[in-house]
Amino acid sequence: MMNDNVFNELNEVIDRYSKYDGIHATSIDGLHCYKMSSLNVRLPVIYRPSIYVVAQGNKQVTLDKEVFQYTQGKYLAVSVDLPLIGEVIKASKDKPYLCAQIDIDMNVMSELVLKLDPKAELHHKTGKGIFVGNMDEALIDAIVRLMRLLDTPKDIPYLSSILFQEIYYRLLSGPHGASIIQTCLQGSNMHRIARIIETMKSDFAKPKSIDELAAMASMSTSSFYNQFKKVTGLSPLQYLKRLRLTKARQILLSDETNATRAAYLVGYESPSQFSREYSRLFGSPPQRDVKAIRKLTTS
């Protein structure tokens, strides 16, 4: 059993570097602090490869219909870009939800994977690009030591990269390590899917067929479809649609643009089709949905 003092220290550091509710960049590239003092609305976010370590409170994310819940003593790991719906489900002013987000640098992770010399059969296994794991003493200790560097800025350029590598190593050598290893292995099914996801994300407004994406992944159409769904929980076209609609919702929430312009920006040629699919995913038409979210977040 892990010492409560470890989480108390993690709470204290995250809270100190989170002056108000929301996500906060830190002086360490790839490390963010997140604080929420009340339950929040279900907001769509594109989660990049990262781990999310909860110090206090409770949160869940939803991928299609599958729910991943994590609290103190657990972490959420995302190894490929995924459009998720996040929701803080346990938080208060006295005990806010506190979380550290540690980005995963896949280039560094891939170098570590090569040193570990993974088994050949991992190339052919495909797992989901998201999971919830249990913290162990070695992993939480490395994370706390990384967080402590925020108090000694002069040490960050020399020690942060070492601690990131230690955290990555702890993840790779843990019970869920194979899920991340597969994503990093050149030529593995998961690595090929991850590359296609990067392509889709970088140019999500451009029309793409499954046959075109499968050819880019050097897979047959049926194999690509099956492998993609194993990794993301969605078909390729469902993923692209979810990506576009999530981006559109973010655009509408951050800008005063109208639904028609948002539709065109994310690749829809028909605003009416955009509105129908948006309503189906988020429960109400674009403008009404955004108005309701703004009312909740400002009340």
Results as ranks from 00 to 15, higher is better:
residue 1 M to K: 12
residue 3 N to K: 11
residue 4 D to P: 15
residue 5 N to G: 15
residue 6 V to G: 11
residue 7 F to M: 11
residue 10 L to Y: 11
residue 11 N to C: 11
residue 14 I to R: 04
residue 16 R to H: 10
residue 19 K to N: 10
residue 27 S to W: 12
residue 30 G to P: 02
residue 31 L to N: 01
residue 34 Y to N: 08
residue 41 V to A: 10
residue 43 L to C: 11
residue 47 Y to N: 14
residue 50 S to G: 09
residue 53 V to E: 09
residue 54 V to F: 11
residue 54 V to D: 05
residue 55 A to P: 04
residue 64 D to V: 09
residue 67 V to L: 14
residue 69 Q to E: 13
residue 71 T to W: 02
residue 74 K to L: 09
residue 75 Y to F: 13
residue 83 P to V: 08
residue 83 P to A: 13
residue 87 E to F: 10
residue 89 I to P: 10
residue 91 A to H: 06
residue 92 S to Y: 11
residue 94 D to K: 15
residue 97 Y to H: 11
residue 98 L to F: 04
residue 100 A to T: 12
residue 101 Q to Y: 03
residue 110 S to E: 13
residue 116 L to M: 06
residue 117 D to H: 09
residue 119 K to R: 13
residue 127 G to W: 05
residue 131 F to N: 13
residue 132 V to N: 04
residue 135 M to F: 05
residue 137 E to T: 09
residue 140 I to V: 06
residue 141 D to R: 15
residue 142 A to M: 07
residue 145 R to L: 13
residue 155 D to P: 04
residue 158 Y to M: 07
residue 161 S to N: 11
residue 165 Q to D: 14
residue 174 G to T: 00
residue 175 P to A: 03
residue 177 G to S: 06
residue 185 L to Y: 00
residue 186 Q to T: 06
residue 186 Q to H: 12
residue 195 R to S: 04
residue 198 E to V: 04
residue 204 F to V: 00
residue 207 P to E: 02
residue 211 D to Q: 13
residue 214 A to E: 00
residue 216 M to T: 00
residue 216 M to L: 11
residue 220 S to F: 02
residue 221 T to W: 06
residue 222 S to F: 05
residue 224 F to H: 01
residue 224 F to W: 03
residue 226 N to K: 02
residue 240 L to R: 03
residue 241 K to C: 08
residue 245 L to G: 03
residue 245 L to M: 08
residue 252 L to R: 07
residue 253 L to A: 02
residue 254 S to D: 15
residue 266 V to Y: 05
residue 267 G to L: 00
residue 270 S to D: 07
residue 271 P to V: 04
residue 276 R to Q: 01
residue 280 R to H: 11
residue 281 L to M: 15
residue 281 L to H: 11
residue 282 F to M: 07
residue 287 Q to I: 07
residue 291 K to Y: 14
residue 293 I to E: 12
residue 295 K to T: 08
residue 296 L to N: 09
